[in-house]
Structure formats: C-alpha cells, structure tokens
Simulated assay, not measured.
Amino acid sequence: MKTLVLGASGATGKLLVEQLLSMGHEVKVIVRPTATIIDTWKNKKKISIIEANISEVSVEEMRDYLSDCQSVASCLGHNITMKGMFGKPRRLVADAVELACKAIEQNASDTPVKFVLMNTTGNRNRDLNESIAFGEKLLIGLIRLLVPPQVDNENAADFLRVNIGQKHKQIEWVAVRPDSLIDNDKVSEYELYASPIRSILFSPGKTSRINVANFMSRLIAEKDLWTKWKGQMPVIYNKEE
C-alpha cells in the first residue's frame, strides 16, 4: 500500500506519516519547499518527499504523483496566525481535495482510491441532518463569516460528500472529525461516533493528534474499518478516564 499525504509537515500530518511507516506502508509526502523536513525521513527507503506548494501543483503533476498510490490522506489546515487565517489561499484544503480527486479520475484506476480527509467537529454532516442548538447555530454562523478556515473545511468535506458521493467508481472517502485537538506522546484509547455527542462550543471533547493519525492510518490499512466508515464523517474523541 502506498499513500500520498498532503499536509505532512503539519502537527498531525507528521504523526500520520510515522504511523503509516510503522505499519510498513510506503508513503509519498508533499511539503512546502520552506518546510522543515524530519531528518529521519531523508534516510528511509519507504518515503518519497516532493517539495511543492500544493496550491501551485497542476492536475497533471498530481496525476503523476498519484499514479502508483492506492490512498490519499489530507491533514492540510491553516496556520493559526493572522496570515494563515485570513491570507491566501483561502481555499487551501478544499482546492487540494478537488485537485487530488480530479487527478484520481484522470488516472482511471480499476480499484477505487481511498481518500481520508482530516476535518473538524465544527462541520456538520448534512447527510445525517445532525441536530444543533439554536445558540450554537448562531455562533457557528458568526464563525463562518469571520473565520475563513471554517468555510474551507466545510467546502472540502462537501466536495467529497456531494461531488464524489457514495457511488463513485474511482474514489471512496472518509472525513475524520476530531474535537479540540491536543498533543500526546502515545496513542490512547479513543471512541468513534457517526455524529458529535457533545456541544462543540459549550462542552467540547478532546482528541489527541496522535489518535487522529492512528485512526486515519488504520482506515487506510484495515479493510473492515474502512467498510464500516466509508462515505461517512466519523467523530473521534479521546476516551475519558
């Protein structure tokens, strides 16, 4: 199994690459030319490093990158800085998802390619008509107006949910929704739900980045787990002690 990881230099992306490598998988990563690359990656035979700005990659280039990959994982996100939140590209995640999907379609593989997207509990799965309190709905609407990354995350998941859908012949997908992200050194027990079980604004849960990486890597590696969640937007929480 070979996986192309987008956003591999980010906090969760690095962990996902390590999880995949530990499983014996081959990995390709696309990282910004200015990104700091982990030294050990440079000496590992099972990782290929592509230095490029994802927003400048053409469909043809992406098609070549994906020609020998059976899965794609995106941990792309906006840096929590003024430039990262409000600067360009505003559609970093959504455009990358669309780019990869177009490239997969052009490759026309006989076997569907798995696409795993890291998303957020701040984005509802409209296929399930997830309920949300009126006050929370108003606040999320305000966030949508004031914080561009919120809309980007919504558009990215909606492209998979609506444009790719459930019956695409070349692409199967899962959008993983962690709650408030925290850092932990080791994988711990976690729980998976089809929809949020907590208020994302008034009573959020916690999800460690390494647990997100573990779940994403397992989705790619484990057939039964993929079958259970494909075409869905599972929510992941750390198991409370």
Rank of each mutant, 00 (worst) to 15 (best):
T3K: 08
V5Q: 01
A11N: 11
V17C: 11
Q19N: 10
L21Y: 04
M23Q: 11
R32H: 15
I38A: 07
D39K: 13
W41N: 05
N43W: 03
K44F: 01
K45C: 01
S55A: 13
E56D: 12
V59C: 11
E61W: 08
R63Y: 04
L66N: 00
C69K: 07
V72P: 01
S74E: 05
S74W: 05
H78P: 08
N79K: 15
I80A: 11
M82R: 11
M82S: 12
G84R: 07
G84Q: 05
F86V: 03
G87T: 09
R90G: 00
L92Y: 10
A96P: 06
K102I: 12
I104F: 04
S109I: 05
D110S: 11
M118K: 10
T121S: 14
R124H: 03
R124V: 04
N125S: 14
G141H: 12
L142G: 12
P149L: 05
Q150E: 10
A157V: 08
L160F: 00
R161G: 02
G165R: 02
Q166V: 01
K167S: 12
K167W: 02
V174P: 01
R177Q: 13
I182R: 13
I182K: 12
D183V: 14
D185I: 03
S188I: 11
S188L: 09
E189G: 13
E191T: 07
S199A: 07
I200N: 02
T207C: 06
I210R: 03
A213G: 04
A213N: 00
F215S: 03
L219E: 04
K228T: 14
G231N: 00
G231M: 00
I236A: 03
E240F: 10
E240W: 07
E241T: 15
E241H: 14
